[in-house]
Design a protein around this nucleic acid. Structure first.
Lengths: 335, 335
DNA sequence: AGGGAGAATGTTACCGTGACCACAAGGACA
DNA sequence: TGTCCTTGTGGTCACGGTAACATTCTCCCT
C-alpha cells in the first residue's frame, strides 16, 4: 500500500474529487454515466479512485437516488432443484446487470412469506421475485401500491400480481394421466407432497383419471418438501393396494425415485407391474437406472426469464402479464 | 384502507412523529430501543405507525447508523446440498436476529469470488460469509482492513482471515483410506471433482494409500461441481483398470451413486468386487439401494455455527479462530 | 458577427434516518 | 430544602451520495 493511502470505509467521493481536482458530482458521473464525462477527466478520476482505493457506498447512493439496485427473492427453500435452479440463474443474470439478490426462505408457510415480504420491503428493493402467486389480499394490495416490479414464478393458475412465469400445474397432472392412458393403463396411484403446486398436479391427475372413468387405486399425501425417503415410505404404505398393473405419478423425481427403489425391494417389476412418472426432470431421474420418466420443466430457464422480465420492468413500465413456460413429458424406462 | 391513509414509499418517520405528537427521534426509539420510551408514548407511536402504514426505510437507517443489518454470503453454487444446506440454516438463523442475507454465487472461480467480494462490499454489509479461506492476498488485506466479521466455512486447512469453520479435507481422505485398509482392502481408486476441497480429500486419500504401500489402480478428475452423470462416466473410464477387489472413494455422494449405478450395469458386484464410499451424506446415499457408505458432515450445523459466530463478532470484537467440526464415516452397505 | 445548441462540469439541496447532546421533570438522599 | 441522578424526550446535524438545475465554453450555422 502506498503512503497516504486510506482504508475502505474512510475514503469517500469528496476525497476522490479533491484528489482529481473535480467536483464530487463528476466522480459520481464517471462511475454511473461515464459517457457524460470527457475522456481526460474520466482518466484522472479513475486514477484517483485507484490511488485512494475508493469504494462507492451503495447505501448512500441508494438513499439519494431512491434505487437500491437490489432485488429480494423469496422462495420456500433452496434445498430442492426446483427452486435452487431458478434462484441460481436469476441471481447470475441480475448480477450481470448490476443487481444483487437478497434471499429469504419462507418454508411452505404463507404467513412466513407475508412476514418476509414485509420485512424485505423495508430495504426498498427495486423488485421482488416470489414463488407462486401471492394469496394474501393485504400483501397483494401492498405490492400493487408499492408500484414495484413483482415477478412470480412457478405457477400460472392464479391472477398475477404483476408478472407470472410458469405453467398450470393441474394441466401437468392431466397430461401425465393422459400419457398413462394412451399407454393403456387403467389403474392409477399418486404420491404427492403437501405443497400448493404439488397439490394442483395431484388434483389435475386425479380429475383426469376420474374423467376417463378409470380407477384410482391409491392416493397418499406426503410432507413438503418431500424427499426420496418420503417416496419410499409412501410406496410402502400403498403397496397393498397396487394391482397387477398400476401407473404411479410422483410429485417430484425424488418421490418417484424413492418409490422405484422401494418397489424393486418388494419385487414389483418396473414398469411392467408398476409404471412410474415423476416431475421436475432432476438429474437423478435421468442418471439413475432404469431412468425414470418425468415431466421436464426448465427451472433454470424460468430464472432467466424472470431476470429478463424484472429488468424490463425496472427500466420501463410494463403491463401485467402471464407468461407460459412449456412443460414436456419425457418417457424413459419406467413407463 | 381508511381515509387519509398513505402508501408505502411516501410515509416517513416525520409523518408518524407528527401524527403521534412526538419528535421523529422518539419514533426511531420505539422501533430500535423500545425500553427507552415510556409505555403510553410507545403505544401512541405504534398506533400512528399502524394507521399510516409506515414502513421504516432501512437504507436511510443504514446510512445514518453505519450498520446495514445485512450479511453478504458468497458460495460457489446452491445447486449442491453441500452449500444449500449451510446457506439455508445461516439465512434462517440470521433472519431471526434481524439480518438479511445477500447471496452471490462465484462458481468455482477464484477471480469471480474476488470480484463478488469487491462488489458486495460496496453495500457495506455487516459481515461476510465465504466458502473456504480467501486466497488472494489483496482481498485478504482488504477484508482485514475493513474490520468486518468474516466467517469462512468448509475448510480449515488454511489460515483464517477471521473465523474458519469446518474440517481438514485431507484428513477426511486419509480417514477413508484407513477405513478401507482396516477392512482389508489393498487396491484403491478415486473419482474426484476438480474443486479445491475435493482435491484436498483426494490427495489425503492417495497419500495415505501410498503411505501404507498399497496400490492406487485408478484416479480420475471430474468437473466441478460434479454430478451423478460424472460419476457414471468416471466409472466407465476406469472400469478396465479395476481388479478383483477395489475400494473406490468418490468426492461426493452423487459421484458415488453414479459409480455404483454404472458398476451394477457392468455386472460388477458392490461391495464384493467394488467397495464404494462417498462424501457428504446427502439424502441419496442413505435412501438409495443399497445405501452407500459415506462421510457425514453436517452442513446445516455449519451454517448455524456460522450464524452464531457472525452474531458474536458483530456484537463484540472477537479473536481470530479456527473451529473444527467433526466428520464421521458412516459404513453402510457398499463397504 | 451574433445567436443558439450542445457538451462538460459545477452548485445546491436534499434523500430518511439515527448519533449525540441538551434539557425538563421527578424522585432519592443527605 | 437543595443537590444529584435517572428517565424520557426533543433539537440539530451528519451519514455519503445523486437529481436537478445552473453555468461555462466551444463550435457551428446563417
Amino acid at each position: 500500500m502506498r503512503p497516504g493511502r486510506t482504508t475502505l470505509a474512510s475514503v469517500k467521493i469528496t476525497d476522490v474529487a479533491a484528489r482529481a481536482g473535480v467536483a464530487p458530482m463528476t466522480v459520481s458521473r464517471v462511475l454511473n454515466t461515464p459517457d457524460r464525462v470527457s475522456a481526460p477527466t474520466a482518466a484522472r478520476v479513475r486514477a484517483a479512485i485507484e490511488e485512494l482505493g475508493y469504494m462507492p457506498n451503495l447505501i448512500a447512493g441508494g438513499l439519494s437516488s431512491r434505487r437500491s439496485r437490489m432485488i429480494a427473492a423469496i422462495v420456500p427453500t433452496i434445498a430442492s432443484p426446483m427452486f435452487s435452479a431458478p434462484v441460481q440463474t436469476f441471481t447470475d443474470a441480475m448480477a450481470v446487470a448490476g443487481y444483487h439478490v437478497m434471499l429469504a426462505l419462507s418454508g411452505y408457510s404463507e404467513e412466513s412469506e407475508d412476514a418476509q415480504i414485509r420485512a424485505v420491503l423495508a430495504r426498498r428493493p427495486d423488485g421482488l421475485l416470489l414463488t407462486g402467486a401471492v394469496r394474501s389480499p393485504a400483501i397483494r394490495k401492498l405490492l400493487r401500491d408499492s408500484n414495484l416490479p413483482v415477478v412470480e414464478i412457478w405457477d400460472t393458475a392464479e391472477e398475477p400480481t404483476d408478472v407470472l412465469i410458469g405453467f398450470d400445474h393441474a394441466e401437468v397432472g392431466a397430461a401425465v394421466a393422459d400419457f398413462f392412458v394412451r399407454q393403456g393403463h387403467t389403474h392409477f396411484a399418486v404420491l404427492s407432497a403437501r405443497d400448493p403446486r404439488a397439490t394442483l398436479r395431484r388434483k389435475g391427475f386425479v380429475e383426469r383419471v376420474t374423467h376417463h372413468g378409470l380407477t384410482l387405486v391409491a392416493e397418499r399425501i406426503l410432507e413438503a418438501p418431500s424427499s426420496i425417503e418420503d417416496g419410499r415410505r409412501g410406496l410402502r404404505q400403498i403397496v397393498g393396494q397396487l394391482g397387477q398393473r398400476t401407473a404411479l405419478f410422483g410429485s417430484s423425481d425424488l418421490v418417484a425415485f424413492g418409490a422405484m427403489t422401494e418397489a424393486k425391494l418388494h419385487g414389483i417389476a418396473v414398469p411392467d407391474q408398476l409404471a412410474i412418472c415423476g416431475f421436475g426432470d432432476f438429474e437423478i431421474s435421468r442418471a439413475c437406472h432404469p431412468p425414470i420418466s418425468t415431466v421436464h420443466v426448465d427451472g433454470a430457464e424460468i430464472g432467466e426469464m424472470a431476470a429478463r422480465e424484472m429488468l424490463t420492468r425496472i427500466n420501463s413500465a410494463a403491463n401485467s402479464a402471464r407468461i407460459s413456460v412449456p412443460f414436456q413429458i419425457l418417457p424413459r424406462a419406467t413407463t
